[in-house]
């Protein structure tokens, strides 16, 4: 088994390995499920929370405190001092494009990231 250190077949393996590695660098990453959620509030409040974490955020606003809960891979508005509670009823924010907004208290909860399969925008 003596002889050249790098045979022709060895080189082929090397090229394939490096080629694959480089090629995969440019494949757009998935950011759907295991992404992050951006929570923004009045006065410059901003928090980025990975969806994998379990956290409760108290976001201050002109009407009071909006409580945003991140658990089980999704974020949601647990409570808010607004009259209509549309933000609470918006449901879970998890996939790219999901959003829950409390307009009176100026709180926005949205999922970051643009996945290939997700639409450019959703009419609702």
């Amino acid at each position: 088994m003596r002889g050249a250190a790098l045979t022709g077949a060895d080189r082929l393996v090397l090229y394939v390995l490096v080629g694959l590695g480089v090629a995969l660098l440019f494949v757009p990453g998935e950011s759907g499920e295991s992404g992050e959620v951006v929570v923004e509030g009045a006065g410059g409040f901003r928090a980025v929370v990975p969806l994998a974490e379990e956290r409760t955020l108290e976001v201050p606003g002109p009407l009071g405190t909006t409580v945003v809960e991140v658990s089980g891979g999704a974020a949601r508005v647990a409570s808010s001092p607004c009259p209509e509670k549309l933000c609470v009823r918006a449901g879970d924010v998890a996939e790219a494009g999901d959003v829950a907004v409390c307009v009176p208290n100026r709180v926005v909860v949205r999922a970051e990231g643009h996945e290939r399969g997700e639409p450019d925008a959703t009419s609702r």
Binding site: P119, D120, A121, T122, R124
Partner: peptide, 25 residues
């Protein structure tokens, strides 16, 4: 693309080979 709470306006060609993909909730 301008998205105002679900009212959407499109300008020009979309990023998907000239088209836009707009979801309906």
């Amino acid at each position: 693309l301008v998205d105002a709470g679900g009212d959407i306006g499109l300008l020009g060609e979309g990023p998907r080979h000239g088209r836009w993909r707009i979801g309906i909730k």
